[in-house]
Nucleic acid binder design. Structure first.
Length: 938
DNA sequence: AATATCACG
DNA sequence: GACGTACGTGATATTT
């Protein structure tokens, strides 16, 4: 039936239904896996009640309209539109797509449009229906929709079952629907952050509009208004008011890809509807709808795991882990069977076995898969015969021959590629970054992925490690086969390709089996721990980004390093001779034990303190103090600096230059630091020297390829900015907003020194205090850092707290929160556990400071993670690569003529990285530098 | 395997 | 009243 006269269109405001359902119901979860479904349940009930209530009525056309995405054309007009809207609750987010599916299951048209609000679609449809001579009922109580009422269009507040017509609108706004937008434009709306005219509410607005007839008339004749305040506001804020009108005016011409005819009411298909309800495990509703449809209700199995522990920890019932049962896949037919199984199931746990731990050099040896707990297989690919090793007396060419019973590598990969890249099959792994890189080097872009290591990290950071052995032990009460049993250790260690296939099957199959079990266990727990969003938006998406950075690597110039190394060696030899001369004997300068004995026993210098091991402390701070008494300590300090630079940097770094790429490829540990920071290993490129002049020169060896430059972008004072925000310190906030020198400003506040008269030394002290605050300040610590008496340091701290009282409150509140919940959180919801917070003794102090620091350091870590995740899209098409992350810095390699564009794009992403989840009260500022090498770029 | 030291943010 | 104290990492060399 074509839509026309006599037709009646009902439009349901989907978001209103969802939010009402969400707030009306307790947080229900699906029994089998803990997925939150309270809102979905309420939504379905409301739909069902609506359908029942209209059975036999005059509704001919029906649709549920949803919002899509958070960015609409209104944000392009006014970026603060809906900016103060609260974040969607963690447990509601995953339910949104389910409400779409519910609507479809009811066989009701389900419509949304990118870039537009549901209200605009409703407006467009209402106008179309009215023009076609039909009637419209909008099921919503949203006042923004009231402008549409009249001429056959009315609203229905489903909750109060109250119809709203022209008179109803007049009651609410004091004007009829055609002037509602004028009133809204003046009154503004704090919920949507529409500014309006300050000081004018609905009452006054209606009065004015009724007097002048329309907003335009009012603004043109604003001079005539008698009240001076009101008159001035209207004249001064004219632009703002006109903008507000544009914001509240619904778009009646949204480009829809369907027509009214597509919205005709249809009966639900019982199988589809009941299938969905069964999947959601809604027992009562399933029964009710089955009765209504006159069909038998499907049975919903009670999936509560038997023997689950009473705390509600749901370990799904699983067969015992038995490595003897895993299958060895040695022909294509068997492999195809496993691939089909994975496709059927929609997920598969994957693990790769390789010849080493370095993803850039290790070769693929085999792949294990697991689809069901207890059912795993191993696909050996490049296992060799014999034991390997150069000094094998019986070594001959057979040593490198492939073992029997393996599918050719290329054939297996070709067969697996479609599965591993299939967007509808979830690939589950433990530390997927490793496997993703191995696959990437074999031409496979594995996606989508889940990672049990990262799930554990999102839920349990600070509690325990997240390696497979730890997790298996802790959550499955199972000790996996140690890799040592297969490879041995030390000198006689073999590589995995030399492991007999039969042994490899057990080990590799077990890894995949354990991974799948952990995944099934963790998945529902993520929701309960309220970290689904942290996991999905700040952990998981980082995997491909880091994989790409690590594979890109950074060019390091070997010659520069070896020249420096020789120079260091020479200087060290000279210093060593002098030290021995001064000591009167030769000894190992690198041995703190021997040095301590020389200094404090032989030379009897003052200040020798023995640690708990009975050895003298000879740290830099100790030697620094001794340096005033004697020449030797200074020499040792110099020697140590050179020794450090030589061994850790100029020498070790050369070993890390990849033979094939000529570049250094670090590896980032995502779950290494409890606060959310990354850790860089093999080699650590996050601690390349920069503070000392000598050390900084190491960075000259990190170079750009010919024709390219290195670009460094770093956040300026990010942790202090976050502190200003979370502790709500107005003085700091406005200083950051005004772009002031924050340490100088702190000094000025504390010591009552005008900014003009600031001395570097006073500023330095204030800087130390600012950092101290971030670390959980103590008089002792500050005293040591500034080398001033403790009492004086304590005085500084007291004055600081007095001057910025919010800081003390923040610290106390944070510790209080940690004591109560055994955890703290970042602004983005990352959870960091603080298990020691209620401990006694010195550990309590540690835990307290860590708890104060964690939300600040963690929030900064979250921000740069978000920037990194958005970066690939932002710089797509540019001749640029992101290479390194150093906590608050990102390093890129860019073709010379693309530098400016890269800096602009990357800076934009970094400075806006908190949006839209967190609205910071302080701006984020990013400084940029560029050059042929890292020293020049920084 | 643990400890001391020192490189970074 | 005494004790021990800045937060977060990783690599290296020495010593156990």
């Amino acid at each position: 039936m074509a839509f026309g006269k006599g037709c009646h269109l009902h439009l349901i405001d989907g978001s209103a239904f969802i939010f009402r359902a969400y707030h009306a119901l307790p947080p229900l979860t699906r029994k089998s896996d803990g997925l939150p479904i309270g809102a979905v349940s309420g939504f379905c009930n409301m739909l069902q009640r609506y359908v029942e209530g209209n059975a036999g009525g005059d509704v001919t056309h029906l649709a549920v309209i949803f919002d899509k995405g958070s960015h609409t054309f209104r944000n392009d007009m006014y970026d603060l539109y809906k900016a103060n809207r609260e974040e969607m609750p963690e447990d509601l987010r995953p339910q949104i797509p389910l409400t779409r599916r519910a609507t479809e299951a009811f066989n009701i048209a389900c419509k949304e449009l990118e870039g537009y609000e549901a209200d605009d679609i409703i407006a467009t449809l209402s106008v179309q229906a009215r023009e076609a001579g039909g009637q419209v009922t909008i099921i919503s109580s949203d006042k923004d929709l009231m402008q549409l009422v009249g001429d056959g269009v009315e609203m229905l507040d489903a909750m109060k079952n109250k119809r709203i017509d022209r008179e109803g609108v007049f009651e609410k706004f004091g004007v009829y629907p055609d002037r509602v937008v004028d009133v809204q434009a003046l009154a503004g709306d704090s919920v949507d952050n529409v500014p309006g005219a300050p000081g004018i509410g609905i009452k006054t607005a209606a009065l004015l509009i009724n007097e002048f007839g329309s907003l335009e008339e009012l603004l043109d004749r604003a001079e005539e208004i008698k009240q001076p305040k009101r008159r001035e506001t209207l004249i001064e804020k004219r632009d703002q008011i006109e903008l507000s009108k544009k914001l509240v005016q619904l778009d009646c011409e949204t480009p829809l890809d369907f027509t009214l005819d597509d919205l005709e009411v249809k009966d639900p298909d019982p199988d589809t509807l009941l299938g969905f309800l069964k999947e959601m495990e809604f027992r009562t509703l399933t029964k009710r709808i089955s009765d209504a449809l006159g069909v038998e209700a499907p049975v919903i199995p009670d999936t509560t795991p038997e023997g689950a522990d009473p705390g509600g920890e749901d370990a799904p019932e699983m067969p015992a882990i038995d490595p003897e049962k895993y299958e060895c896949v040695s022909d294509m037919a068997a492999l195809e069977r496993w691939i089909a199984k994975a496709h059927d199931r929609g997920w598969v746990a994957v693990d790769t076995e390789t010849t080493g731990l370095n993803e850039m050099t290790a070769d693929l040896v085999g792949i294990s898969l697991c689809v069901e707990a207890g059912e795993a297989c191993y696909v050996p690919l490049t296992h060799k015969t014999g034991k390997g090793g150069d000094d094998d007396l019986f070594a001959d060419k057979d040593q490198d021959a492939l073992a029997e019973g393996q599918i050719p590598l290329d054939d297996a990969l070709a067969a697996l590629k479609p599965l591993l890249e299939d967007p509808s099959v979830m690939k589950i792994g433990q530390n997927m970054k490793y496997d993703a890189k191995i696959f990437a080097r074999n031409g496979i872009a594995i996606a989508p992925i889940d990672d049990t290591m990262l799930m554990s990290y999102a839920m349990n950071a600070g509690q325990h490690g997240h390696g497979m052995d730890t997790l298996a032990e802790r959550y499955l009460s199972h000790t996996p086969i140690p890799i040592k049993d297969l490879l041995g250790s030390g000198k006689s260690m073999i590589t995995f390709d030399r492991v007999p296939i039969a042994d490899a099957v057990k080990y590799a199959g077990e890894d995949a089996d354990i991974t799948l079990r952990l995944w099934q266990l963790f998945k529902p727990q993520l929701h309960r721990a309220r970290v689904t969003r942290v996991y999905e938006s700040m952990e998981r998406p980082l995997v491909p980004v880091l994989a790409e950075m690590e594979m890109a690597g950074i060019k390091v110039d070997r010659n520069t390093l070896s020249r420096m190394s020789s120079a260091f060696a020479q200087k060290m030899a000279g210093l060593e001779a002098e030290i021995h001369e001064l000591a009167g004997e030769t000894f190992n300068v690198g041995s703190p034990k021997q040095l301590g004995e020389i200094l404090f026993d032989k030379m009897s210098l003052e200040g020798g303190k023995k640690g708990k091991t009975g050895a003298y402390a000879t740290g830099a701070d100790v030697l620094e103090d001794l340096a005033t008494e004697h020449e030797l300590p200074r020499r040792v300090l110099d020697w140590r600096q050179l020794s450090k630079l030589k061994s850790t940097y100029t020498d070790a770094l050369q070993e890390h230059i990849n033979k094939d790429t000529g570049r250094v490829h670090t590896s980032y540990v995502i779950s290494g630091a409890a606060t959310g920071r990354l850790a860089s290993t093999d080699p650590n490129l996050q601690n390349i020297p920069v503070r000392s002049e000598e050390g900084r020169r190491i960075r000259e060896a990190f170079v750009a390829e010919t024709g390219k430059v290195l670009v460094s972008l770093d956040y300026s004072q990010i942790e202090l900015r976050i502190l200003a925000h979370v502790a709500g310190i107005d003085a700091l906030k406005s200083a950051f907003r005004d772009g002031q020198d924050i340490h100088a400003m702190t000094a000025s506040e504390m010591f009552n020194v005008p900014m003009e008269d600031m001395t570097p030394d006073v500023r330095r002290q204030a800087k130390a205090i600012n950092f101290g605050v971030i670390y959980g300040i103590s008089g002792f610590g500050l005293a040591r850092n500034l080398r001033i008496p403790r009492s004086e340091a304590q005085g500084f701290i007291d004055r600081y707290f007095e001057r910025f009282p919010g800081i003390k409150d923040y610290m106390d509140d944070t510790v209080e929160f940690a004591r109560k919940h055994n955890r703290v959180e970042t602004l983005f919801g990352r959870v960091i556990h603080t298990p020691e917070i209620n401990a006694k003794g010195p550990r309590a102090g540690f835990a307290k400071r860590a708890a104060i620091n964690a939300p600040i350091q963690g929030t900064a870590a979250d921000i740069i993670r978000r920037a990194m995740i958005r970066m690939p899209d932002a710089i797509r098409g540019m001749p640029a690569k992101m290479l390194l992350q150093v906590h608050d810095e990102l390093l890129f390699e860019v073709e010379e003529d693309g530098v400016d564009a890269l800096i602009a794009a990357a800076r934009d992403v970094m400075e806006g990285a908190a949006d839209p989840v967190v609205k910071l009260d302080v701006p984020l500022v990013v400084d940029a530098g560029q050059g042929a090498n890292w020293a020049a770029a920084h």
